[in-house]
Design a protein around this nucleic acid. Structure first.
Lengths: 158, 158
DNA sequence: TATTGTTATACTCTATAACTATA
DNA sequence: TATAGTTATAGAGTATAACAATA
């Protein structure tokens, strides 16, 4: 059982991953900006694209957000014409949030940008190094108890 | 020359590194909380510990922050008794910000927590995997043009 | 004129509580 | 009583501009 070597914090796993992660979020936001989409908005839209209609509460749970903050976000997405609120006839307290065709188009356009982001973050890693890095990070994410696809950034600061 | 494989975004390098990075920042903040230190405050204090006295402008440049935001941060650190403002006699426009003994103690106490953070982020990686991960991330950081030790989180959102 | 530190203002985000309508 | 959605309010954090003192 070997303990982590005492490295300078600039070269520690913790600092490097958080430094690169923060820069990655910045680059993603810069890629999204021309489309007028926020990272938060894309989180909701891509979730809807993957799991069909959901209530605001279900979306909030899925993304680790509070339902209060989901209201304004859905307002914004509805104002852009990307989603619609449909009253749930079985439980009239809740809405079914559905992607519009325009919303589906936005998700597709953002998905086309993702390889660009991936290439930028990958930098000069060889194919083999790239797969190794993904495998190690995937293992770290699992050990940290992170849910696949759920970004802590969306959950706020508690 | 191989292009990045089209992986689901949850398993992409970009998503994984930003997901783990955001969680790492949360865990770091939780570790600092009992000491009453913010990540931002630690950034300034550790910078002062490493590079002796600096002006507020120099600190802001070193951390990628705006000097306007440094004022309140130094106010807070001075209120806690961790730093002191000394007028620079050679250029009376600026202050020399100096760590107090209490401030030095805070840096030392935080530094003692870093191995705990490193171990948590490392998770179940073997010694060899850990070194591989650090090497790959270090390479990625270099290719992204990140300055060693400078966390984009401190710079704000531009 | 330019720079350092400062202040003021607006804007974004988030956290909390409380309200309404439904169940 | 409990839940889904909503609203209001307060608090961080940041961005921008402008000011006083000094160079």
């Amino acid at each position: 059982m070997d303990s982590p070597a005492a490295v300078a914090y600039e070269q520690s796993l913790a600092f490097l991953v958080s430094q690169i992660g923060a820069r990655t979020v910045q680059i993603f936001a810069e890629l999204l900006a021309p489309l007028g989409v926020s990272a938060r908005a894309y989180g909701v839209l891509s979730n809807l694209a993957a799991a069909s209609t959901q209530s605001q509460q279900q979306l909030a749970d899925a993304l680790g957000m509070h339902r209060n903050n989901m209201v304004g976000l859905i307002d914004e997405l509805e104002g852009r014409g990307w989603v619609h609120r449909h009253r749930n006839t079985a439980d009239r307290r809740s809405f079914d949030i559905r992607l519009t065709d325009a919303g589906t188009g936005v998700v597709e356009r953002v998905n086309e940008l993702l390889p660009t982001l991936e290439g930028t973050v990958r930098g000069g890693l060889t194919g083999r190094q790239y797969e190794t890095a993904r495998g190690l990070l995937s293992s770290m994410a699992r050990d940290l108890g992170l849910r696949p696809g759920v970004h802590p950034y969306l959950a706020g600061r508690r």
